[in-house]
Amino acid sequence: MALVEIENLSVEFPTQGGIMRAVDGVSLKLEEGEVLGVVGESGSGKSVTMLALMGLIPFPGRVRADKLAFNGRDLLTISDKDRRKLTGKDVAMIFQEPTTSLNPSFTVGFQLTETLRLHEGMDRKAAERRAVELLGQVGIPSPESRLSAYPHQMSGGMNQRVMIAMAIACNPKLLIADEPTTALDVTIQAQILDLLISLQKERNMGLVMITHNMGVVADTAKRVMVMYAGQIMEERSADDLFASPQHPYTAALLAALPERSEGGRLATIPGVVPGLYDRPKGCLFSPRCAYATEHSRNVRPTLKPWAGGHIRCHYPLGDPNRDAEIQHDHPVGTEAAS
């Protein structure tokens, strides 16, 4: 039994301008102890996908799926009460902005022991002892004195460590880290990533690392899921993906990595992720894709098995017949580039 099973997940937000489809038919399986990287530009639906798994989609968002299960529990039919027993205990999440993610009016100790008292039924003393242990485990110096500190008295990096301590407090089977280092200084970023990886190994916990930075994925994940405009574009093992990306979008993301840029110039993908109004009829990436054809503009590719993973493109980069097919389907190139 997989730890996480998601089939055909869609999340929609009704807005004034119409229905915003933030997640569009995402399917995903995650085994116990597996590390999955979820990459894509900002606005690709990475956060919303994982918030749906956590049951944290804010009103009036709508979640639909053929299957949404965690550790064998059906999350589509689970009661709110049972759901709360899972959330924060067996599956935990940390966020991009550690400082605003902690409550400014309560001490670190209060916020940390709160989880322990709720899910583990500890009394105050026991919870405090455990909280000190946890703060030590996430690398916070003199943890005892930190219990009475408020979030605004600590740095972003320290606050993220507190968030991590809070998340791992009840030994979750799955930790979702949503851009955990994006808001931090570069030097701190590596420390936090190292911490997450070592905690994951120690506890054999499932880890979903959400990021818009391919570099972060390269350092952490075994398997990578590339998202774009709410859809999965490519999904395969990290090694394969980095060695030979199959989707033009993945390739473009990799080309934008500083260490892969040619002549010191940072390659960026022209254009932006489509929003509510400019969602293309065919392939969602077609307005920005250098290989777009009449066919890909009109017919949306499905996610199909390819090269040991999955890909959503009519012309996978590793397909030997690719050039001929593109020629046959009338290449149009990028709108953004023209």
């Binding site: 027993k85 959330t87 999440m93 966020f95 993610s101 409550n103 809070m166």
Partner: peptide
């Protein structure tokens, strides 16, 4: 709408506790 309310939800706290403690304490300021 603050991030820490999302955190409180992610901790599995009850709706009442989130509103009456985590939110109200800040709203009272």
């Amino acid at each position: 709408g603050e991030d820490y309310i999302r955190t409180a939800k992610a901790k599995g706290l009850s709706r009442f506790r989130i509103v009456a403690l985590h939110a109200l304490r800040n709203a009272l300021i």
